[in-house]
């Protein structure tokens, strides 16, 4: 790509905002973000990402998959965020590949939060 000018910078921003659904709404109904910082990867985020990709491909879903860095609460990794249009973002913690498949079934396809995997206040199971 050629060098950017200040105007180009603005164009990328506008286009990005539209795509991310921040202003416009071209963006897909469901967006799934796997957090893949060192902590996420050390906890198995790669396996979760693979499970997600496979489930989405197998079921031929129209889902936007993205990766991102660490959101800060590293001991709940691997963390997956699911953003359905017009709904609050839902965060899942300690996600395993099997849990990812369940989340795809229940939340992404079915629209029901997979409460079993919701990130909760304490990391210890009672």
């Amino acid at each position: 790509m050629a060098k950017l000018s200040i105007e180009d910078l603005q164009k990328i921003k506008d286009k990005g905002r539209a795509a991310a659904g921040m202003r416009g709404s071209e963006h897909k109904d469901v967006r799934v973000v796997v957090h893949m910082g060192t902590c996420g990867i050390a906890s198995g985020a790669r396996g979760v990402m693979n499970a997600l990709l496979k489930a989405v491909e197998d079921k031929n879903l129209d889902v936007e998959i993205s990766q991102s860095g660490c959101i800060g609460i590293c001991d709940r990794e691997p963390i997956v965020s699911v953003i359905r249009k017009n709904e609050p973002m839902i965060r899942y913690g300690k996600v395993t590949p099997a849990a990812m498949e369940e989340i795809v079934e229940s939340h992404i396809i079915g629209g029901a939060v997979a409460e079993k995997y919701l990130m909760i206040e304490t990391s210890e199971k009672k």
């Binding site: 990328i12 286009k15 991310a20 910082g37 993205s66 991102s68 860095g69 660490c70 959101i71 800060g72």
Partner: peptide, 18 residues
């Protein structure tokens, strides 16, 4: 952090980057 894809400069620019 945890919001944008760190491998995408466009996403950074979208968040007012640069």
């Amino acid at each position: 952090c945890g919001v944008i894809d760190p491998r995408s400069i466009d996403e950074y620019i979208t968040m007012d980057g640069y």
